[in-house]
Computed example of a mutant assay.
Amino acid sequence: MPAGELIGRTVTVSAPATSANLGPGFDHLGLAYELRQQATLRVIDSASVAEVTGEGADTVPRDGSHLIIRSALAALADLGLTVPGLALTADNVIPHGRGLGSSAAAIVAGIMAAAALAGVEAEPARVLRRAVEIEGHADNVAAALHGGLVIAYPESAGTGDPGFGVARVGVHPEVGAVVYLPDTPVSTAEARGLLPATVPHGDAAANAGRAALLVEALSRSPELLLAGTADRLHQSYRRVAMPASYDLLESLRDKGFAAVISGAGPSVLVLGRVAELAALPDRSGFRRLALRIGTGARVEPGPR
């Protein structure tokens, strides 16, 4: 299809907020929520422009460097298409820099939009690979793409680029989530920079067992969520960057709630039966948000 034929085409897509890690599942477990980033992209015959409202609107670019636009243009280029520009309209509902996958949602939304604009199927494996190339990690983008609970795993143990496979796991119908959102963000790069190059073998072994238990807890046995969310691999190393979040995490766990740092933080995620989560206390300095488990990215009905 000649790129000129795309001028004027419009598509609306949405992708969910997500939490990665979920405690012990570092870089491999992800969970999607019914809190959705919606974006409308239109192919224009001039330079790209972004009109953004909502969360983080005063900090994101308003030109072609916006992450949704960049991701869409990269995906169009993969399809052999170059367009003069894209006009983005988005109302952000996912908090930025809080560990809720705002970047992953933007990337997946952009790639899905590109496929729709080009009139081709958005093959999940191809979308995932491109999203990982942009994002750097598979857990959030896999959850944003597929929804629900996912296990993202390298398809090869080699040292080259292995690509990622995704196993989708059904979530127990009684399970929900509450997120405590702090006022101050923490960058993923900063949080990852605090992690050591190596960890004790015992800590790695403990996390492997807890991650396996967590999948059982989320899918069939919610009573095991507190035990299944125990982590010795990454959260304590990040405490210095988010002391208030870590103090909240410990306080909630002492009360029997399955609390973890959401992704790279600083939000605190609590998993449990929805009825039990209603008893969670307020916390000064944090905004509390109840979330349902969500579906994956999709093209929304509307004009093309």
Rank of each mutant, 00 (worst) to 15 (best):
P2Y: 05
E5A: 15
G8Q: 15
T12G: 02
V13M: 02
A15M: 01
S19P: 14
S19I: 15
P24H: 12
D27Y: 13
R36A: 04
R36F: 05
R36T: 09
A39V: 04
S46H: 10
A47S: 10
S48V: 04
A50I: 00
E51C: 08
D63T: 10
S65H: 12
I69K: 14
S71E: 05
A72Q: 11
A74F: 04
L79V: 13
P84Q: 11
P84Y: 04
V93Y: 07
P95A: 09
H96F: 07
H96G: 12
G97N: 04
G99A: 12
L100W: 08
G101V: 06
A104P: 00
I107T: 09
A114M: 02
A116M: 07
A122H: 05
P124R: 06
P124C: 08
R126T: 12
E135R: 02
H146W: 11
A152W: 11
Y153D: 10
S156G: 12
T159W: 04
R168A: 10
V175G: 06
G176F: 02
P185N: 03
S187T: 10
L194S: 05
L195P: 05
L195C: 06
P196D: 06
P196A: 06
P200K: 08
G202E: 11
A204E: 08
A208V: 13
L214C: 08
L218M: 01
S219C: 10
E223K: 11
E223G: 13
G228F: 13
R232W: 03
L233R: 10
H234F: 00
Y237D: 03
R239K: 14
R239P: 13
M242G: 06
P243L: 02
S245T: 11
L252M: 07
K255R: 15
V260W: 14
L277G: 14
A278T: 13
A279G: 15
L280E: 08
P281A: 15
R287C: 15
L291P: 15
R292K: 04
G296Q: 14
R298E: 15
R298N: 15
